[in-house]
Design a protein around this nucleic acid. Sequence first.
DNA 1: TGAATAGTGTCTTTCAGACAATATGCC
DNA 2: GGCATATTGTCTGAAAGACACTATTCA
Lengths: 226, 226
Amino acid sequence: MPTAYNLDKFDKPSVTVDIIIFSIISNELKVLLIKRNVEPFKKFWAIPGGFVKMDESLEAAAIRELQEETGVKDVYLEQLYTFGDPNRDPRTRVITVSYFALINAEKVKLMATTDASDVNWYSITKVPKLAFDHDKILRYALQRLRWKLEYTNVVYSLLSERFTLTELQRTYEIILGKTLDKRNFRKKILSLKILKDTKQYTKEVSHRPAKLYTFLSKAPQIIEFI
Amino acid sequence: MPTAYNLDKFDKPSVTVDIIIFSIISNELKVLLIKRNVEPFKKFWAIPGGFVKMDESLEAAAIRELQEETGVKDVYLEQLYTFGDPNRDPRTRVITVSYFALINAEKVKLMATTDASDVNWYSITKVPKLAFDHDKILRYALQRLRWKLEYTNVVYSLLSERFTLTELQRTYEIILGKTLDKRNFRKKILSLKILKDTKQYTKEVSHRPAKLYTFLSKAPQIIEFI
DNA sequence: TGAATAGTGTCTTTCAGACAATATGCC
DNA sequence: GGCATATTGTCTGAAAGACACTATTCA
């Protein structure tokens, strides 16, 4: 790394963070998109993001943007990949550090109060053509999410504090896009010893109530899942 | 992402790429480091890297730096993580996109011809305190390497074109830092059907010659290994 | 024939996957 | 009792892991 130079005499790229925000809403995996109202890619939908300030870390920038778009804090956030093709933005050189976030559907409801005319949750099966290289970023994020689901416990961040095994299974099925055998799923998930039986049951359902579970730990863990 | 602004009216961070270059030399996993001859961190060892030019992609920048440091092309290269703490460089804001590279020990020999007074291969068990946050970057790279070794076929990039099963096993053992059972290793690796028997044997050894194998494909593949 | 490394097979245990009947609560 | 969902166990096949002896070449 050259250091004798004056760093400021060179042109520098702009640096942004983009955040792929996933949630499960109405039994579908959805991603939060915003509609651009200026060129380039005016009227295209895009992944939310913004410039990194000079005195904030990348993660802090991602958290700030997330907060601005959704009003939600305390979510699962993970750096995804850095995209830096010289021509990915037609205006100037922009390098973007992408993050992906998982938000619990309950907290998402809060967000409906913000002015959301040009903000929308899209089912990942119905995402329109996106601005810039955001299609590629989204595909990458989806791949990572599926991988994370199978090999770690991140799923906790999509669920409420307490949940039934059926809800947990449904979440896996929605994200993986395939059905799972109920008995095998339960056998496997319980054998991992990452759930705690709360001794409570669902109420006010017109059928047999289900046991409610919580995660023993919400620290991210690498575990062989499913 | 704001777009109505003039992008150039803001301060921008500098962007570099740093490359963790691994190889196996003398039966040890080694990493290439360079000694800094200017402040800050003068005389500290550091991971090689440099600024990203305005018209080159991140990967192109990494390949260029790799070439400059080692004279080697055609290696395994993968983006690792982007480090961007505001104070990671005491001079100014520098965001670094780290890559890790795997180089075949044979090709490495070529490099000895460059002026290498302040370039050195360090066994990963003997790395000194590094400049900036490079300790952290190296730790991260090592973790990723071990993971990749177990779940993909990247090991091909550390070996010669043809190799014996014993050499292959030795490579795994060196990187994972543990011994493996010879019969189980062979059973597993052959069952994956990623190797091809060349019908040739090692020569000029004073013991039973070993079969030489090659990889059927050198395209990166996700595979459950070991 | 001794030194050095190559090469090979069985048993046990664990885990994934296929598969269907009973239990409970509410109306 | 009927409806809706919750809960539970067995069998089979595949793969992982423990473990030791024979084969080949050269000096």
